[in-house]
Simulated assay, not measured.
Amino acid sequence: MKELQIPNGYFHLWRNYLAEQGVNGLEIKQIQPYKKQIENILDAPIAQQSSYPLFWNIIEITQKQLDKPQLIFEMAKGVKPEHFGVLGYMATRSTSFAEALSYILKFSRLVIDGDEIIPMQMHQEQQNIILSWPYIDDDFNLINELTNALMIELGRKIVPLDNFPLRRVGFAHSAQMAQFHYQKFYACEVVFDQPDYTLVMSTESLNIQIQQADPSLLQLLIQQAEEAIASKPNHENMARQLHLIIAEYLKIQQQAPKIEDIAKELHVSVRTLQRQLKDLGSSFKQILEAERMKHCEKLLAQQMSLTDIALQLGYSDQSALARAFKAHTGQTLLQMKYQLKEDKNQSL
Protein backbone atom coordinates (compact mmCIF):
# COMPACT_ATOMS: atom_id res chain seq x y z
CA MET A 1 0.00 0.00 0.00
CA LYS A 2 1.18 3.53 -0.73
CA GLU A 3 2.38 5.40 2.35
CA LEU A 4 0.06 8.12 3.57
CA GLN A 5 -0.07 10.18 6.74
CA ILE A 6 -3.33 10.95 8.56
CA PRO A 7 -4.06 12.83 11.81
CA ASN A 8 -3.62 11.05 15.12
CA GLY A 9 -7.09 12.44 15.76
CA TYR A 10 -8.55 9.72 13.54
CA PHE A 11 -7.15 7.07 15.91
CA HIS A 12 -8.63 8.96 18.87
CA LEU A 13 -12.00 9.05 17.11
CA TRP A 14 -11.85 5.27 16.64
CA ARG A 15 -10.99 4.67 20.31
CA ASN A 16 -13.67 7.06 21.58
CA TYR A 17 -16.36 5.50 19.41
CA LEU A 18 -15.57 2.00 20.66
CA ALA A 19 -15.50 3.21 24.28
CA GLU A 20 -19.04 4.55 23.79
CA GLN A 21 -20.01 1.05 22.63
CA GLY A 22 -18.47 -0.44 25.77
CA VAL A 23 -15.57 -1.94 23.80
CA ASN A 24 -11.83 -1.54 24.49
CA GLY A 25 -10.45 -1.46 20.97
CA LEU A 26 -6.95 -2.39 22.11
CA GLU A 27 -8.27 -5.64 23.60
CA ILE A 28 -9.81 -6.89 20.34
CA LYS A 29 -7.88 -10.08 19.59
CA GLN A 30 -7.04 -9.29 15.97
CA ILE A 31 -5.75 -5.82 16.97
CA GLN A 32 -3.29 -7.17 19.55
CA PRO A 33 -0.35 -7.25 17.07
CA TYR A 34 -0.80 -3.49 16.56
CA LYS A 35 -1.44 -2.59 20.22
CA LYS A 36 1.94 -1.00 20.97
CA GLN A 37 1.89 1.09 17.78
CA ILE A 38 -1.61 2.34 18.50
CA GLU A 39 -0.76 3.16 22.13
CA ASN A 40 2.23 5.23 20.96
CA ILE A 41 0.00 7.14 18.54
CA LEU A 42 -2.66 7.79 21.18
CA ASP A 43 0.02 9.08 23.57
CA ALA A 44 1.45 11.47 20.95
CA PRO A 45 -0.03 14.94 20.24
CA ILE A 46 -3.41 14.61 18.56
CA ALA A 47 -2.43 17.01 15.75
CA GLN A 48 0.54 14.90 14.65
CA GLN A 49 0.22 12.46 11.76
CA SER A 50 0.68 8.70 11.64
CA SER A 51 0.44 5.75 9.28
CA TYR A 52 -2.70 5.35 7.18
CA PRO A 53 -2.04 1.65 6.37
CA LEU A 54 -2.14 0.90 10.11
CA PHE A 55 -5.43 2.79 10.47
CA TRP A 56 -6.90 0.97 7.47
CA ASN A 57 -6.06 -2.37 9.08
CA ILE A 58 -7.70 -1.58 12.40
CA ILE A 59 -10.85 -0.15 10.78
CA GLU A 60 -11.27 -3.27 8.63
CA ILE A 61 -10.82 -5.45 11.72
CA THR A 62 -13.32 -3.36 13.69
CA GLN A 63 -15.92 -3.45 10.92
CA LYS A 64 -15.78 -7.24 10.85
CA GLN A 65 -15.68 -7.59 14.64
CA LEU A 66 -18.76 -5.40 15.14
CA ASP A 67 -20.43 -6.46 11.87
CA LYS A 68 -20.87 -2.78 10.94
CA PRO A 69 -20.04 -1.93 7.32
CA GLN A 70 -21.37 1.57 8.12
CA LEU A 71 -18.76 2.02 10.90
CA ILE A 72 -17.26 5.19 9.45
CA PHE A 73 -20.61 6.99 9.48
CA GLU A 74 -21.21 6.06 13.10
CA MET A 75 -17.68 7.18 14.00
CA ALA A 76 -18.21 10.48 12.17
CA LYS A 77 -21.02 11.45 14.53
CA GLY A 78 -18.44 11.97 17.25
CA VAL A 79 -16.11 14.24 15.30
CA LYS A 80 -14.77 17.38 16.98
CA PRO A 81 -12.42 20.11 15.68
CA GLU A 82 -9.43 18.56 17.46
CA HIS A 83 -9.69 15.41 15.36
CA PHE A 84 -8.52 17.52 12.39
CA GLY A 85 -5.83 19.25 14.45
CA VAL A 86 -5.25 22.97 13.93
CA LEU A 87 -7.20 22.96 10.66
CA GLY A 88 -10.33 21.81 12.47
CA TYR A 89 -10.11 24.74 14.85
CA MET A 90 -9.46 27.14 11.95
CA ALA A 91 -12.61 25.98 10.18
CA THR A 92 -14.76 26.41 13.28
CA ARG A 93 -13.36 29.85 14.13
CA SER A 94 -13.61 31.34 10.62
CA THR A 95 -16.11 34.14 10.06
CA SER A 96 -17.83 32.58 7.05
CA PHE A 97 -18.21 29.31 5.19
CA ALA A 98 -16.16 30.77 2.31
CA GLU A 99 -13.29 31.61 4.64
CA ALA A 100 -13.37 28.12 6.19
CA LEU A 101 -13.19 26.53 2.72
CA SER A 102 -10.21 28.70 1.78
CA TYR A 103 -8.25 27.41 4.78
CA ILE A 104 -9.24 23.80 4.07
CA LEU A 105 -7.88 24.17 0.53
CA LYS A 106 -4.70 25.89 1.67
CA PHE A 107 -3.76 23.71 4.64
CA SER A 108 -5.13 20.27 3.66
CA ARG A 109 -1.64 18.75 4.02
CA LEU A 110 -2.04 19.11 7.78
CA VAL A 111 -4.79 16.49 7.59
CA ILE A 112 -3.88 14.08 4.76
CA ASP A 113 -0.33 14.08 3.42
CA GLY A 114 1.69 11.98 1.01
CA ASP A 115 3.38 11.99 -2.40
CA GLU A 116 0.23 10.70 -4.12
CA ILE A 117 -2.05 13.40 -2.73
CA ILE A 118 -3.25 16.19 -5.01
CA PRO A 119 -4.66 19.31 -3.33
CA MET A 120 -8.42 19.67 -3.40
CA GLN A 121 -9.67 22.15 -6.00
CA MET A 122 -12.70 24.42 -5.95
CA HIS A 123 -14.54 25.78 -8.98
CA GLN A 124 -17.97 27.16 -9.81
CA GLU A 125 -20.53 25.77 -12.25
CA GLN A 126 -23.62 27.95 -12.60
CA GLN A 127 -25.14 28.16 -9.09
CA ASN A 128 -22.93 25.43 -7.61
CA ILE A 129 -19.59 25.43 -5.84
CA ILE A 130 -17.73 22.17 -6.45
CA LEU A 131 -14.88 20.79 -4.36
CA SER A 132 -13.08 18.03 -6.25
CA TRP A 133 -10.06 15.76 -6.04
CA PRO A 134 -8.97 12.82 -8.20
CA TYR A 135 -9.15 9.06 -7.78
CA ILE A 136 -5.73 7.49 -7.18
CA ASP A 137 -6.47 3.82 -6.52
CA ASP A 138 -8.54 1.56 -4.26
CA ASP A 139 -6.04 1.87 -1.40
CA PHE A 140 -7.53 5.31 -0.75
CA ASN A 141 -11.23 4.34 -0.71
CA LEU A 142 -11.51 4.19 3.07
CA ILE A 143 -9.73 7.45 3.78
CA ASN A 144 -11.79 9.26 1.12
CA GLU A 145 -15.04 7.97 2.61
CA LEU A 146 -14.07 8.71 6.21
CA THR A 147 -12.63 12.18 5.58
CA ASN A 148 -15.69 13.08 3.49
CA ALA A 149 -17.99 12.03 6.31
CA LEU A 150 -15.94 13.84 8.96
CA MET A 151 -15.86 17.11 6.99
CA ILE A 152 -19.60 17.03 6.43
CA GLU A 153 -20.42 16.17 10.04
CA LEU A 154 -18.10 18.88 11.39
CA GLY A 155 -19.71 21.32 8.94
CA ARG A 156 -23.14 20.45 10.31
CA LYS A 157 -21.92 21.33 13.79
CA ILE A 158 -20.70 24.80 12.84
CA VAL A 159 -23.38 25.82 10.34
CA PRO A 160 -27.10 26.02 11.22
CA LEU A 161 -28.62 22.74 10.09
CA ASP A 162 -31.38 24.35 8.04
CA ASN A 163 -28.71 26.29 6.11
CA PHE A 164 -26.37 23.38 5.47
CA PRO A 165 -25.60 23.66 1.75
CA LEU A 166 -24.71 20.13 0.62
CA ARG A 167 -26.45 19.23 -2.65
CA ARG A 168 -24.57 16.25 -4.02
CA VAL A 169 -21.76 13.87 -3.09
CA GLY A 170 -19.79 12.04 -5.76
CA PHE A 171 -17.42 9.12 -5.20
CA ALA A 172 -14.86 7.98 -7.77
CA HIS A 173 -15.08 4.43 -6.45
CA SER A 174 -18.04 2.07 -6.16
CA ALA A 175 -20.23 1.85 -3.05
CA GLN A 176 -18.45 0.10 -0.19
CA MET A 177 -21.67 -0.75 1.67
CA ALA A 178 -25.41 -0.74 1.05
CA GLN A 179 -26.30 2.58 -0.59
CA PHE A 180 -29.03 3.42 1.91
CA HIS A 181 -26.26 4.03 4.50
CA TYR A 182 -24.88 6.80 2.28
CA GLN A 183 -28.31 8.29 1.66
CA LYS A 184 -29.14 8.27 5.36
CA PHE A 185 -25.90 10.01 6.34
CA TYR A 186 -25.59 12.60 3.59
CA ALA A 187 -29.33 13.30 3.08
CA CYS A 188 -28.73 14.38 -0.51
CA GLU A 189 -27.95 12.85 -3.90
CA VAL A 190 -25.03 10.40 -3.70
CA VAL A 191 -23.45 8.91 -6.84
CA PHE A 192 -20.61 6.46 -7.42
CA ASP A 193 -18.02 5.53 -10.06
CA GLN A 194 -17.55 9.17 -11.03
CA PRO A 195 -14.47 10.65 -12.78
CA ASP A 196 -13.50 12.46 -9.53
CA TYR A 197 -14.56 12.83 -5.93
CA THR A 198 -16.86 15.83 -5.55
CA LEU A 199 -18.81 17.76 -2.95
CA VAL A 200 -21.39 20.06 -4.53
CA MET A 201 -22.82 23.03 -2.63
CA SER A 202 -24.81 26.12 -3.51
CA THR A 203 -22.96 29.37 -4.22
CA GLU A 204 -25.16 31.02 -1.60
CA SER A 205 -23.47 28.86 1.01
CA LEU A 206 -20.28 30.93 0.76
CA ASN A 207 -22.02 33.76 2.61
CA ILE A 208 -23.14 31.63 5.56
CA GLN A 209 -21.78 33.03 8.81
CA ILE A 210 -20.17 30.62 11.28
CA GLN A 211 -21.65 30.81 14.76
CA GLN A 212 -18.38 30.18 16.65
CA ALA A 213 -16.28 32.74 14.74
CA ASP A 214 -13.30 34.14 16.67
CA PRO A 215 -11.11 36.40 14.47
CA SER A 216 -8.46 36.95 17.17
CA LEU A 217 -7.97 33.25 17.82
CA LEU A 218 -8.07 32.58 14.09
CA GLN A 219 -4.97 34.73 13.49
CA LEU A 220 -3.00 32.69 16.00
CA LEU A 221 -4.22 29.47 14.38
CA ILE A 222 -3.18 30.68 10.91
CA GLN A 223 0.32 31.41 12.17
CA GLN A 224 0.50 27.97 13.76
CA ALA A 225 -0.71 26.30 10.55
CA GLU A 226 1.82 28.19 8.40
CA GLU A 227 4.64 27.16 10.72
CA ALA A 228 3.48 23.53 10.60
CA ILE A 229 3.39 23.54 6.79
CA ALA A 230 6.83 25.17 6.60
CA SER A 231 8.29 22.49 8.88
CA LYS A 232 7.11 19.66 6.64
CA PRO A 233 9.83 18.19 4.42
CA ASN A 234 9.41 18.65 0.70
CA HIS A 235 8.42 15.44 -1.04
CA GLU A 236 11.25 13.78 -2.94
CA ASN A 237 8.71 12.94 -5.61
CA MET A 238 7.91 16.56 -6.40
CA ALA A 239 8.00 15.98 -10.17
CA ARG A 240 5.44 13.14 -9.97
CA GLN A 241 3.16 15.22 -7.77
CA LEU A 242 3.39 18.09 -10.22
CA HIS A 243 2.48 15.79 -13.13
CA LEU A 244 -0.65 14.74 -11.25
CA ILE A 245 -1.66 18.30 -10.36
CA ILE A 246 -1.19 19.61 -13.92
CA ALA A 247 -3.10 16.65 -15.38
CA GLU A 248 -6.00 17.36 -13.02
CA TYR A 249 -5.87 21.09 -13.85
CA LEU A 250 -6.07 20.39 -17.58
CA LYS A 251 -9.04 18.07 -17.05
CA ILE A 252 -11.06 20.33 -14.74
CA GLN A 253 -10.14 23.84 -15.88
CA GLN A 254 -9.87 22.86 -19.56
CA GLN A 255 -6.95 25.20 -20.09
CA ALA A 256 -3.20 25.12 -19.56
CA PRO A 257 -2.05 26.35 -16.15
CA LYS A 258 0.62 28.96 -15.60
CA ILE A 259 3.41 28.30 -13.14
CA GLU A 260 1.83 30.90 -10.85
CA ASP A 261 -1.36 28.79 -10.74
CA ILE A 262 0.51 25.64 -9.73
CA ALA A 263 2.70 27.41 -7.18
CA LYS A 264 -0.49 28.73 -5.60
CA GLU A 265 -1.92 25.18 -5.49
CA LEU A 266 1.22 24.01 -3.66
CA HIS A 267 1.36 27.14 -1.44
CA VAL A 268 4.94 27.95 -2.40
CA SER A 269 6.48 30.85 -4.30
CA VAL A 270 7.21 30.56 -8.01
CA ARG A 271 10.92 30.92 -7.28
CA THR A 272 10.82 28.09 -4.71
CA LEU A 273 8.98 25.80 -7.13
CA GLN A 274 11.45 26.55 -9.91
CA ARG A 275 14.40 25.85 -7.60
CA GLN A 276 12.94 22.55 -6.38
CA LEU A 277 12.33 21.36 -9.94
CA LYS A 278 15.82 22.42 -11.02
CA ASP A 279 17.26 20.34 -8.16
CA LEU A 280 15.31 17.37 -9.57
CA GLY A 281 16.69 17.95 -13.06
CA SER A 282 13.35 19.09 -14.43
CA SER A 283 11.36 22.25 -15.11
CA PHE A 284 7.76 23.41 -15.12
CA LYS A 285 7.84 23.78 -18.91
CA GLN A 286 8.97 20.16 -19.42
CA ILE A 287 6.29 18.74 -17.12
CA LEU A 288 3.56 20.96 -18.56
CA GLU A 289 4.45 19.92 -22.12
CA ALA A 290 4.40 16.22 -21.21
CA GLU A 291 0.95 16.53 -19.63
CA ARG A 292 -0.35 18.60 -22.55
CA MET A 293 0.61 15.81 -24.94
CA LYS A 294 -1.06 13.15 -22.77
CA HIS A 295 -4.21 15.23 -22.60
CA CYS A 296 -4.03 15.89 -26.33
CA GLU A 297 -4.25 12.14 -26.98
CA LYS A 298 -7.34 11.91 -24.76
CA LEU A 299 -9.02 14.77 -26.62
CA LEU A 300 -8.12 13.23 -29.98
CA ALA A 301 -9.79 10.00 -28.87
CA GLN A 302 -12.92 12.05 -28.09
CA GLN A 303 -12.99 13.28 -31.71
CA MET A 304 -12.49 16.91 -30.71
CA SER A 305 -11.35 19.19 -33.52
CA LEU A 306 -7.66 20.10 -33.69
CA THR A 307 -8.50 23.80 -33.44
CA ASP A 308 -10.45 23.25 -30.21
CA ILE A 309 -7.70 21.03 -28.81
CA ALA A 310 -5.09 23.69 -29.52
CA LEU A 311 -7.23 26.33 -27.80
CA GLN A 312 -7.88 24.17 -24.75
CA LEU A 313 -4.20 23.26 -24.34
CA GLY A 314 -3.04 26.85 -24.64
CA TYR A 315 -1.41 26.82 -28.10
CA SER A 316 -1.80 29.79 -30.41
CA ASP A 317 -3.26 27.68 -33.23
CA GLN A 318 -3.48 24.20 -34.75
CA SER A 319 -0.06 24.50 -36.38
CA ALA A 320 1.64 25.27 -33.08
CA LEU A 321 -0.04 22.23 -31.54
CA ALA A 322 1.05 20.04 -34.45
CA ARG A 323 4.69 21.14 -34.13
CA ALA A 324 4.72 20.55 -30.37
CA PHE A 325 3.12 17.12 -30.75
CA LYS A 326 5.58 16.01 -33.44
CA ALA A 327 8.56 17.26 -31.41
CA HIS A 328 7.38 15.47 -28.27
CA THR A 329 6.10 12.17 -29.67
CA GLY A 330 7.76 11.80 -33.07
CA GLN A 331 4.32 11.34 -34.64
CA THR A 332 2.02 13.72 -36.47
CA LEU A 333 -1.44 14.43 -35.14
CA LEU A 334 -2.97 12.62 -38.11
CA GLN A 335 -0.85 9.53 -37.43
CA MET A 336 -2.00 9.54 -33.81
CA LYS A 337 -5.67 9.95 -34.81
CA TYR A 338 -5.34 6.98 -37.17
CA GLN A 339 -3.64 4.89 -34.47
CA LEU A 340 -6.34 5.69 -31.91
CA LYS A 341 -9.03 4.76 -34.44
CA GLU A 342 -7.32 1.45 -35.17
CA ASP A 343 -6.96 0.70 -31.45
CA LYS A 344 -10.65 1.40 -30.93
CA ASN A 345 -11.68 -0.86 -33.82
CA GLN A 346 -9.55 -3.72 -32.49
CA SER A 347 -11.11 -3.42 -29.04
CA LEU A 348 -14.64 -3.82 -30.45
Rank of each mutant, 00 (worst) to 15 (best):
D139E: 14
Y135E: 08
L146E: 06
V86Y: 06
E145M: 10
K106E: 15
M75G: 05
M151S: 12
S102F: 05
D138T: 12
I117T: 07
S96L: 04
G78R: 00
N144W: 06
W133T: 02
F84A: 06
I152P: 01
L131A: 07
P119S: 07
D115K: 14
W133C: 02
A91W: 04
R93Q: 13
S108G: 14
P119A: 07
P134W: 08
L131E: 03
D137G: 11
L101Y: 06
F73C: 05
T95A: 06
T95M: 03
I143M: 08
P134Q: 05
P119W: 06
M122T: 04
L131K: 01
I129F: 02
G114V: 08
Q124E: 14
E82Y: 08
T95E: 14
M122V: 07
V111G: 03
N141Q: 13
I112Q: 09
F73P: 03
V86W: 04
I130G: 04
T147S: 15
E99T: 00
L101M: 13
D138E: 15
S102A: 14
A91L: 14
W133G: 01
D113Y: 14
H123V: 11
Y135V: 10
M75Y: 11
A91N: 02
V79C: 12
A100N: 01
V79Y: 07
D138W: 03
L110F: 10
P119Y: 06
G88N: 09
V86K: 05
L105G: 11
E145L: 13
Q126I: 04
I117D: 02
K77F: 02
D115A: 14
S94M: 01
V111K: 11
V79D: 11
R93C: 00
L150D: 12
L110H: 10
D139P: 01
A91G: 07
K80T: 15
I118K: 13
A76C: 12
G78M: 09
I118P: 01
G85A: 09
G78E: 07
E145A: 13
P134A: 10
L87I: 15
T92H: 00
E99C: 00
A91E: 07
E82Q: 15
I129Q: 10
F140C: 07
L105I: 06
I143A: 08
P81D: 07
D113H: 13
L150N: 09
S96T: 15
T95L: 02
L105V: 04
F84Q: 07
K80W: 03
D139S: 15
Y103P: 02
Q126T: 07
I136C: 03
E145V: 05
N128E: 12
G88R: 04
A76T: 12
V86Q: 03
A76D: 06
F84H: 07
E82W: 02
E125P: 01
D139R: 02
L101T: 10
H83K: 09
K77P: 00
K77M: 05
G78L: 14
L110R: 08
Y103N: 01
L150P: 09
L101P: 01
N144H: 14
N128G: 00
L142R: 06
I117G: 03
G88C: 09
Q124T: 15
A100S: 15
S102D: 14
Q127H: 11
N144T: 15
I136L: 13
L131G: 05
S132N: 08
A149Y: 00
N128A: 10
L131W: 10
D137W: 04
